[in-house]
Design a protein around this nucleic acid. Structure first.
Ligand SMILES: [Mn+2]
Ligand SMILES: [Mn+2]
Ligand SMILES: [Zn+2]
Ligand SMILES: [Zn+2]
Lengths: 167, 167
DNA sequence: CCTTCAATTGCAAACGATTTGCTACAAAGC
DNA sequence: GCTTTGTAGCAAATCGTTTGCAATTGAAGG
C-alpha cells in the first residue's frame, strides 16, 4: 500500500465537499497508478486558476506560465489529460454551443452555469447558486442512476449584439 | 400577397404558445420567402413525431417514411434544413454529450430536459416540468439579454450499466 | 399548361476538431 | 543508477460538419 504524505486520509473523490487542490488532485492520480508530470501539474494549475471553462488551446497556451523552461505541452497531451480527468470525473466538458470543447474542474468551486451569447460568443458564468443541484439526487433516485451531474447553459443575444441588428 | 388556407392569421413565432404544426411551420418558412419541398415536409414530420432529440442520420433515415417514392433526402439537405430551423429559432441543438449533434423542435411540446447515461448512451426525456424556465426571464433582464433559451441535461450511470462494473 | 427565376438539392470535396499509433522519454520504486 | 511502465511529442488518421457548384424544382405569372 502507498504511504501517504498528506495529513488527511481521504483522497478527494469527484463529489468531495472540499475544494480541489493541486495536492489532492495529484494524490487522486497517483492512487490510480498514474504519474504526476510537469505537463500535468501545469495543466492542473491552469484549471485551478480558471474562472470560466477553457478550451484545449487555451489550456495549452496558459500552461506555459507554470511549466519550467516555458515549454507548452503538446496539444495531444492536453487532450489526453482532459480525457483522463473527465474519465475520473475530476473535470467536465461544458457545452458552450461552440464547435470545440471547453472544460472545467468538477468541484463546486469551479462549477457554474453559463450564459452564452449566440452572436458574439461571450460567456458569462452565472453568480446565482445552481438551481438544479438538489434535483440531481431526486433524479438519481427516481431513475436509478448513480454519479449524476448536470450541464445547464442559457443562450441568448447580449445587449451589444442586440443594438443595431434587430434580428 | 399569398392567400391563406389556414383559419387563423397569425404565423407561429418561435415562442408561440400553441404547438407547432406542419401547417404553421410551413407558413413560417413561406413568410421568409423560403419554399416548402418534399424533403422539408418529411423532415418536419419526423421532428413533429419525435419523442426525443434526433441526430441528423436518424432524421434522414426516418424521413423515408414521409417521402413519396421512399427516397431519403441527402445528408447535406438534412444538415442545411436543421441549420435553417435553428437560425429561425424553430429548432434547437441539444447537448447529449456525444460527438454529433441532436435536435428538437423549439416548442414546449418538444422541449424536455434529459437524463443521459454516460456509459450506454441511453437518453431519458424527463417528465418533470422544466425547473429553469422561469429563470430565463430573470436572467434575460438581469444581464440585458434577449431571446434567452436554455439547455439542461443530467448525466450519470443507469442501473443496467452500474450492475457488474463497480465504477 | 408553359415560362421564368430564385431557392433547393445531391454529390463530392474541403474543413476543423478530435483521436490514435508509434517511438523516444522520463517518473517512481528498488 | 537501473528497471519498469506510464507519458509526451509528432504526424497521420478519423470523424462530424460545412461548402462549392451544377442540375433540379417550387411556385408565381402569363
Ligand atoms: Mn449547475
Ligand atoms: Mn428545460
Ligand atoms: Zn453578444
Ligand atoms: Zn447505461
Amino acid at each position: 500500500m502507498p504511504r501517504s504524505h498528506s495529513t488527511h486520509h481521504h483522497p478527494p473523490h469527484a463529489d468531495d465537499a472540499e475544494p480541489f487542490t493541486l495536492e489532492g488532485l495529484t494524490e487522486s492520480l497517483r492512487s490510480k497508478g498514474l504519474r504526476m508530470t510537469g505537463n500535468r501539474r501545469a495543466i492542473l494549475q491552469v484549471l485551478l486558476q480558471a474562472e470560466e471553462p477553457l478550451g484545449l488551446e487555451q489550456i495549452q497556451s496558459e500552461a506555459v506560465r507554470y511549466a519550467r523552461g516555458g515549454e507548452t505541452p503538446d496539444f495531444a497531451t492536453v487532450f489526453r489529460m482532459m480525457a483522463l480527468l473527465e474519465e475520473l470525473k475530476l473535470a467536465r466538458k461544458v457545452n458552450l454551443g461552440r464547435a470545440s470543447s471547453f472544460f472545467e474542474l468538477a468541484d463546486s468551486r469551479h462549477h457554474r452555469d453559463h450564459l452564452v451569447c449566440t452572436d458574439c460568443g461571450t460567456v458569462t458564468p452565472l453568480e446565482e447558486s445552481c438551481p438544479v443541484e438538489t434535483l440531481e439526487r431526486q433524479i438519481a433516485r427516481k431513475h436509478g442512476y448513480t454519479q449524476v451531474t448536470h450541464s445547464l447553459e442559457f443562450f441568448g443575444r447580449c445587449g451589444d449584439c442586440s443594438t443595431g441588428s434587430p434580428s
